[in-house]
Write a protein that binds this DNA or RNA. Structure first.
Lengths: 139, 139
DNA sequence: TCTTGCTCCTCTAGTCGCTAGAGATCGTAG
DNA sequence: CTACGATCTCTAGCGACTAGAGGAGCAAGA
């Protein structure tokens, strides 16, 4: 059951250069090679890469994923750490949503003008003058 | 009314290296220099940089900001373009919010376990198996 | 006058998570 | 044998900065 990198790519939906990149930074283990120096993958690689992809889709960064992989490899340890990583991530997501929502309100208000000329344009005006805006500085 | 770069930084809240970076990529004009080669700014720079900062805070990217600056410099032109940029940005923000909200739901569900061991950990489990998850692939 | 300490200068390289491209090699089908 | 596709390595680029090295300018105090 030896998969070439292209096959692995198709099965997991992860692009070939990305697979090589993951290997380079230690997210995927170096696979054995064929005589002609091609990478040969097996089922374990498919699983690992699926895990990584899924975690990326959920927005975890590669450092977090590294930790989660470590944890997944030790099923008998307590899972506090995994929960913690996930909760921290959740907090980040919620923070982003909150800030984006504030932005939406602001930008929405900007677009509610239909003046003819730049001179009186709400968009430009709001940007030029902090005073017109309720926006608070982000960290 | 000559401001050193540090002063400009304090007045606008934009960090010094960022100011130099903006100059380098043409977002800020090159200011005149003192005898000792220090940059000398005036009120126009303060305003321009304030505009940029504000737009960045609202999430506009530097290319959009370049266009907006162009527009702001021609008050007698129609402002359709500015409106368009703002509306496009608004659409992006709304898209991001929608996707983050989906993620939040997903990650929230992951964190609602309090098993003891990694073996049964919801977080790891969900990541390992696509099937456990309603998440759709992002573009 | 000298020194201390702050600001400023330029330049390069690093961040994150890839992505793109060049140029070479491998493997296979006709 | 040849053509073509898949793969190899290596380097550089994206956006929007940020960090650091190594040097020079400048003002105030001793």
């Amino acid at each position: 059951m030896n998969l070439a990198i292209g096959e692995l790519s198709k099965r997991t939906g992860v692009k070939i250069p990305t697979i090589r990149y993951y290997e380079q930074i230690g997210i995927l283990p170096e696979p054995p090679r064929s005589e002609g120096n091609r990478r040969l993958y097996d089922e374990t690689h498919v699983q690992r890469l699926g895990f990584v992809r899924h975690a990326r889709e959920l927005g975890f960064d590669l450092d977090a994923i590294r930790e989660l992989i470590e944890l997944a490899g030790h099923p008998s340890r307590p899972c506090e750490k995994a929960d913690e990583i996930a909760r921290a991530h959740l907090a980040k997501i919620e923070d982003k949503i909150a800030r984006l929502s504030a932005l939406r309100t602001e930008v929405e208000r900007m677009t509610q003008c239909s003046n003819e000329m730049v001179e009186n344009c709400r968009v430009i005006e709001v940007l030029a003058d902090h005073g017109n805006c309720v926006h608070e500085t982000r960290r």
